[in-house]
Write a protein that binds this DNA or RNA. Structure first.
Lengths: 239, 239
DNA sequence: GTCTATAAATAGATAGAC
DNA sequence: GTCTATCTATTTATAGAC
């Protein structure tokens, strides 16, 4: 390919398989003290933080490297010392993102009472929307645009996890502890409703003049989502 | 401002108030036959269609004017004859979008039985996700990024409509025909769950290997969303 | 590791002929 | 209305000194 330069905007898509975060270790070898490595990771982290804030607001192509550098308080040239390209930064951000996004699902305690367990999951997802709105929005942006970079992870890590949790939900229903419901659509409904308050925050704000910044609203959202999702799932005699 | 040229990527935001679609009438006056106007509108429409497909997939900054032109089968120069700028195209697309997006809400028949009415609204929203996935996704993209161009419309047209429908839902509850629920959160839940299958189609596909292209899946989604949303809302003795 | 140029190319937009 | 040619700012990325 010779001279590397700006590539056409489109093939965002071709996207390789594993989505591996190129670590500093890939750089020309040099004796690295623990301290040195720590400083490098700190700087990389600061750049990724700045990039998340910008990518989630303006998208990949709406954000310039210059902006990321300025926000992270490093020079543009310096940024290119830590990351091979803008796309490399983007991949780095997405990589951290998926882990964060998956965390509440991993922690979903399905070995308890279903109503309690699902209620707690909803609470944690709402909390995630509150504490990581930018992560939620960038994840959303990436999904909406076809998830070119995450597709592989979705089909492996995510699918495995979701399949396992779906099985437990089926078990609850079979045991008569939960009304009959398709577990996948239930999980989608929980994701959709809880993420909505982060992803569509501008719409919520336009209509209600508030958002997850307000702690009382967080409580209100949690209560209402729990009610909507759970009240139809209790076991009733008239079924 | 003199020479017009590319503006900095960011202030996507400053965004004026009304979001008016600059019509062909704004062009230098010339005697226009009905036929002529029709051809102009047809061409503008074709460009907007192409732009919707691309903007919804790659975002505003990820799409080039060249691509829009090629997709619409016109030359780039010709496109600039019909639209003053790339942003002008974008505003044109968004303007059509909001109308489409609002349509099912307008048609929401709240003067019938609540369970039936809300069930029908869900059905129509799922159908919209099926028939207008690109519109749904671009709307989502715009919301996630802060809705700079739609903010005004959200605070006026949308708010007015939603407030009105919320009042009816409250009426149902007061009349004992519907369980007690916050109408806004109910509406958010319906939007979130139904739009999810268009906006997060790539995630749904990664997990279930299907999507709204499949008519049976459309039915499945409709049934499940209706069940999840509605089953908790019926009036029960044990309340 | 960090900085000062600067290269290379894209992409939005216009001029002006037909 | 449509096309060919072109202008120019922006932006990604690199070279090379310190």
């Amino acid at each position: 390919m010779g001279r590397l330069s700006r590539r056409p905007a489109q093939p965002d898509a071709p996207a390789g398989k594993p989505l591996a975060l190129k670590t500093a270790a890939a750089r020309p070898a040099r004796p690295k003290t623990a301290n040195r490595l720590k400083r490098i990771e700190a700087k990389r982290g600061a750049i990724l933080d700045a990039a998340l804030a910008l990518f989630s607001r303006y998208g990949l192509h709406g954000t310039t490297v210059e902006q990321i550098a300025r926000t992270a308080a490093v020079s543009k040239t310096n940024l290119f010392y830590y990351f091979a390209s803008k796309e490399d930064v983007y991949v780095g951000v997405l990589s951290r993102l998926l882990d964060q996004w998956l965390e509440p699902l991993r922690d979903l305690q399905l070995d308890t009472d279903p109503i309690e367990g699902i209620g707690e999951y909803i609470r944690r997802k709402v909390l995630f929307s509150r504490t990581h709105p930018e992560a939620s929005r960038l994840f959303c942006l990436e999904m909406v645009q076809g998830a070119p970079l995450l597709r592989h992870e979705l089909e492996t890590s995510l699918k495995q996890l979701v399949d396992a949790k779906a099985e437990v939900i089926r078990g609850w229903t079979a045991a008569g502890k939960l009304g009959p419901i398709d577990p996948y659509h239930l999980i989608f409904a929980i994701w959709a409703t809880t993420q909505h308050y982060a992803d569509f925050a501008s719409q919520v704000d336009a209509l209600l003049n508030t958002g997850l910044d307000d702690e009382r609203f967080v409580e209100e959202v949690t209560r209402n989502v729990q009610r909507i999702i759970l009240d139809g799932l209790r076991v009733r005699k008239d079924d």
